[in-house]
């Protein structure tokens, strides 16, 4: 009986899949986070990623963006070597329009705040989708919007369902009882992320309290998603685990407060890669979720092995001078 059912199910699946593909008819209209209705007349073959998000979505769908922006003049590392030879579109906030024009993409996808001043130019080149990409809802909405534009709405919805399920699963297994902060710092000015940023949202789903909390000034607004934090405040919060994006050298790392922090004493300060501050794509957020689970609870969760070495969190070093 089982031998009969399995081929039948496979045939049914293939048929259903074909139906879905046939159902992806164009034109397709998507409303992006500018509340702008963007119409695509045909399925995009070439996608320009004006942030790592779109490249992430393409890779999650088994494809590849044709162009990708850089952050701080560096190509993102969490997508591995697969994006190494993709056309460089310049910095995420300052797209090289000549290269973009030459690329002739069918679709351009970017972060709204970075792309807003140049939106008209983007639209002259190709249909353009702009997303906020700050909180969890932004991530789900943008994935669904972009996959719809690519004629793969169901895959997008599935990616969202899978992530929600995995986050719930890991959250249920998480022992809890920890406090943490996610810092981004440059030189001697550290910033801490608020509760609503997606990386911190994931942290909280893992039963870890964000010691910096929510924005008190404008809790209903998505921006700002981070604010400066004084070293005295950090000492007062004294989190169990500290995640820091960017350098662990320079005067900031030599500040005397570091040596008094529990996280430093217990060697639980980690330098994280750029996908922690831009974790909104399906691959990035999944990596952040699984890596955070391990960093917070190494006895409960094994270290994910599929994250490229260059993108993995590593213990931060602090001078005792």
């Amino acid at each position: 009986m089982r031998l009969f059912i399995i081929p039948f199910a496979v045939l049914f699946g293939v048929f259903t899949r074909t139906e879905l593909l046939l159902a992806d008819t164009y034109p397709v209209a998507i409303t992006d986070d500018r509340q702008q209705l963007v119409t695509l007349t045909h399925r995009p073959e070439s996608v320009a990623a004006i942030s790592v998000f779109a490249a992430d979505v393409m890779q999650a769908l088994g494809s590849q963006a044709s162009g990708l922006s850089t952050l701080n003049h560096q190509r993102t590392r969490f997508l591995g070597d697969t994006v190494a030879h993709v056309t460089d579109l310049g910095e995420v906030h300052e797209t090289n329009m000549e290269v973009l024009t030459q690329l002739k993409p069918d679709l351009i996808v970017g972060i709204r705040t970075y792309t807003e001043p140049h939106a008209a130019k983007f639209e002259q080149i190709a249909p353009f989708l702009a997303y906020d990409l700050i909180d969890y809802a932004d991530s789900d909405r943008a994935i669904l919007g972009m996959t719809t534009a690519l004629g793969k709405a169901e895959e997008g919805a599935q990616l969202n369902r899978d992530f929600a399920a995995r986050m719930a699963e890991l959250g249920n297994k998480a022992p809890g009882g920890l406090r943490s902060v996610l810092l981004w710092y440059w030189d001697d000015v550290p910033f801490a992320f608020y509760d609503h940023h997606l990386a911190v949202h994931i942290m909280r789903e893992l039963q870890v309290n964000n010691a910096f909390g929510a924005s008190e000034l404008a809790p209903s607004l998505k921006n700002p998603f981070a604010a400066p934090i004084s070293m005295e405040k950090l000492l007062q919060l004294d989190p169990d685990v500290i995640l820091a994006f960017k350098g662990d050298s320079g005067p900031f790392a030599q500040h005397p407060v570091w040596q008094r922090l529990t996280a430093v004493k217990q060697q639980r300060v980690y330098r994280v890669a750029d996908h922690y501050v831009m974790p909104h794509g399906p691959i990035a957020r999944d990596m952040v979720l699984r890596e955070l689970a391990h960093l917070f609870y190494p006895a409960t969760f094994a270290a994910p092995s599929d994250i490229p070495v260059a993108a993995r969190a590593r213990p931060a070093a602090f001078s005792s001078d």
Partner: peptide, 14 residues
């Protein structure tokens, strides 16, 4: 500041 992008927030404070 425009060129430095992500660095800019720290630079603004300084």
């Amino acid at each position: 500041l425009i060129a430095s992008d992500g660095e800019a927030m720290g630079l603004y404070v300084w």
